[in-house]
Computed example of a mutant assay.
Amino acid sequence: MTTHIIRTEGAKLTVYLEGPEWEGAPSATLGDFSCETPEAGREVLRRAIEHIRDAGGDRVIGPMSGDTWHSYRVVSESDGSAAFLMEPTHKPHEAELFRAAGFSVISKYFSARVALAQTAQASPAASEAFEIEAWDGRNPEALFRQVYALSVEAFSRNAFYKPISESDFLAMYMPVVPMLKRELIFFARRPDGSLAGFLFGIPNYAEGPNPSAAILKTYASLERGAGRHLASHFHKSALQLGFETAIHALIHDDNQSAERSVAEGATVFRRYELLGLRLDG
């Protein structure tokens, strides 16, 4: 991926010229953004946009470190609580700097929390289309190879999707293996043994070595209802492990899982935005 790091006094960001498609056209993305002052932020954004324009680009997405497999989104609203593990974090003025540079919202997301004593009580009706099984804790590389294969299929229709190689995917996720808790990772399997869905949960180690919250980080399914069953098993297992709260992390506002999170009584504590700029407009 072609990248260009721009540093000014008090600010930096990375320009990724080969980002995902937006509105059917290729885009560049701006990621790894930080600034000490609004003035420094405005200047580094100006230089980045100029670099993209000089390279022939006419669509810019940010904040996004190249694609949706990596860090993206900016915090737009918060209750002030501490960031959870692997959550994007930005200073309050950074979203305003993007807007001042001409960016507008192109996608919205949220994170919510729910008491496990509340949500772990419900159980969806059994399905003949699949069964849920917990990860056995063995061969983590095989685990992530399965997660990669299903993710590519399940997420390929999502907005801003861009393919990633299996080797790059493994390089991202294998370092987190020491933090995994097998009781928070589940598969949905069809009667023939093929994978119908997965759920990847992890303790919120941002709280310290003995966190009270478990994060429902990512799940995907190819069978109707599998996501609900996976979430139910995650909530019940997290409660049995002694966790008090589940964090439903980084959900797209229009995703079916957003409706499910609301139905389970979760309370939104953070909102995020992805921003876009058309240079031909």
Rank of each mutant, 00 (worst) to 15 (best):
28 A>Q: 02
30 L>C: 07
31 G>H: 02
31 G>F: 01
34 S>L: 11
38 P>D: 08
44 V>F: 02
45 L>W: 00
47 R>Y: 01
47 R>W: 01
49 I>E: 02
49 I>N: 00
50 E>G: 07
51 H>Y: 05
55 A>W: 07
59 R>Q: 14
61 I>D: 01
62 G>Y: 00
62 G>E: 00
63 P>G: 10
65 S>A: 15
65 S>I: 00
67 D>V: 00
70 H>S: 12
70 H>N: 15
70 H>G: 02
70 H>P: 02
73 R>L: 05
75 V>N: 03
76 S>C: 12
77 E>S: 15
78 S>E: 13
80 G>E: 06
81 S>P: 03
84 F>K: 02
85 L>T: 14
87 E>I: 04
90 H>D: 14
90 H>A: 15
92 P>R: 10
93 H>F: 15
94 E>W: 10
95 A>R: 09
96 E>S: 14
96 E>L: 14
98 F>H: 04
99 R>F: 07
99 R>S: 07
100 A>N: 10
101 A>N: 07
104 S>V: 09
108 K>G: 05
109 Y>L: 14
111 S>Y: 05
114 V>W: 05
123 S>N: 08
123 S>H: 07
124 P>V: 08
127 S>Y: 09
128 E>V: 07
128 E>C: 04
130 F>W: 09
131 E>W: 03
131 E>H: 13
134 A>V: 10
135 W>F: 12
135 W>T: 08
136 D>G: 12
137 G>L: 12
138 R>H: 13
140 P>N: 05
141 E>N: 06
141 E>M: 08
142 A>R: 12
144 F>R: 05
146 Q>D: 15
149 A>L: 12
149 A>S: 15
149 A>D: 15
149 A>P: 10
152 V>K: 12
153 E>M: 11
154 A>V: 15
154 A>S: 13
156 S>N: 12
157 R>L: 11
159 A>G: 15
159 A>C: 06
161 Y>H: 13
161 Y>W: 13
